[in-house]
Amino acid sequence: MNEEWLIYRGVGEPHDGIEALPDPPPWRDFDGGPVGEPGGPADTADGNVTRRLGAHRQAAELHRPEPEELEAINAALYLRRPLLVTGYPGTGKSTLAHAVAHELKLGRVLRWPVVSRTVLQEGLYRYDAIARLQDVQIAASGGPPWGPPAGPPGPAPGAGPGRAAPPVPGIGKYIRLGPLGTALLPTERPRVLLIDELDKSDIDLPNDLLNVLEEGEFALPELERVADTEPEVQVLTDDGAKVTVRGGRVRCRAFPFIILTSNGERDFPAALLRRCIQLKLGQPGEKRLATMVRAHLGEEAARLGADLIREFLSRSQSELVAADQLLNAIYLTHHAAPPTREDLADLLIQRLDRPR
């Protein structure tokens, strides 16, 4: 494969290849602004690199993807399209997001885990209307309900001549952008967003995502209603930083690199599929499993666990098993003496498709 066009090369070492990413196609060119800071702490700040990619990742070169993986990831980068990654549990779907963010120096991965009750607004932003109402009531009463110690009857606190009621904080204090909302903030470099296990959602969420993924923007009605008097409002991001939202709308400039993962438990609407680059991950082979063990547990563990890797591969031909089960088994059996070692491996590598 000609690798000259690749922005993400899967080498595992951070580099500035994102600077070589050409302008987007006209139909995926967004003009949000003004451009803010890239945002988000580095992955190393919260330990995600070591936890997700392995403490020995440099020696193992774990995340050197197959050519079809590299092509799909780079197609998503070039076309500014989400990458829909399908595969069995433990095939490394979520890890791809962390590998791309680490290598291209795109900061912390924004993660939005999906469950059956997840709705679109949770990914965009949260507005705590109850807390705001409580603060308004406290301010109207002249202070917090616990107030000063009881004393002789007199005017209510804050109600006397020359005394103003405590101010009510601005509406921005009660709004926090979610992972998707934070990813769509206007920045020069794209953020990396992981929408994990989309197939766990209810039937509406994939369709609800269509407009946001196509237009790269969303509105905050609570801020649009006060835009005449408060055209600029500071809110919190998913990273915990403060940013300014203007006119009650957020529009991206660099479309985020979005990975949507699915275990293949359901079909998605054609309207979503045509907006995504699709990648299907198969079960890892012996070489990839060995490098995964080497990346997380070191060379000696990979050597001593070779028999467990072969046993895992044999079982994976007829059973649904996950690679993290293999990691657990090798880690624990590395500290156990025979014959307990084999018993522990059987205990930890349980088939996931066992009939109930």
Score class of each variant (00 low, 15 high):
8 Y>F: 15
9 R>T: 15
30 F>H: 13
39 G>W: 04
47 G>Q: 08
53 L>D: 10
63 H>P: 00
66 E>N: 03
72 A>Q: 05
74 N>K: 03
79 L>R: 12
83 L>S: 05
83 L>R: 03
85 V>G: 03
85 V>M: 06
89 P>M: 10
93 K>E: 12
94 S>N: 03
94 S>L: 03
108 R>A: 15
114 V>K: 04
123 G>K: 01
127 Y>I: 05
136 V>D: 02
138 I>A: 14
138 I>Y: 08
141 S>V: 00
144 P>S: 13
149 P>C: 00
157 P>V: 13
157 P>I: 13
164 A>N: 07
182 T>E: 08
191 R>I: 02
194 L>F: 10
197 E>N: 12
198 L>C: 10
200 K>V: 10
209 L>Y: 06
216 G>Q: 09
223 L>T: 02
224 E>L: 11
226 V>A: 08
230 E>S: 09
239 D>A: 09
241 A>R: 11
244 T>Q: 05
253 R>V: 01
255 F>I: 00
262 S>G: 07
267 D>K: 05
268 F>D: 11
272 L>I: 08
280 K>A: 14
285 G>T: 03
301 A>R: 11
302 A>G: 00
308 L>I: 05
311 E>G: 15
311 E>K: 12
320 L>D: 02
323 A>F: 01
327 L>T: 09
331 Y>K: 13
339 P>H: 04
339 P>G: 05
340 T>L: 14
341 R>A: 13
342 E>G: 04
343 D>N: 04
345 A>F: 14
345 A>D: 04
346 D>H: 11
348 L>Y: 10
349 I>E: 06
351 R>E: 12
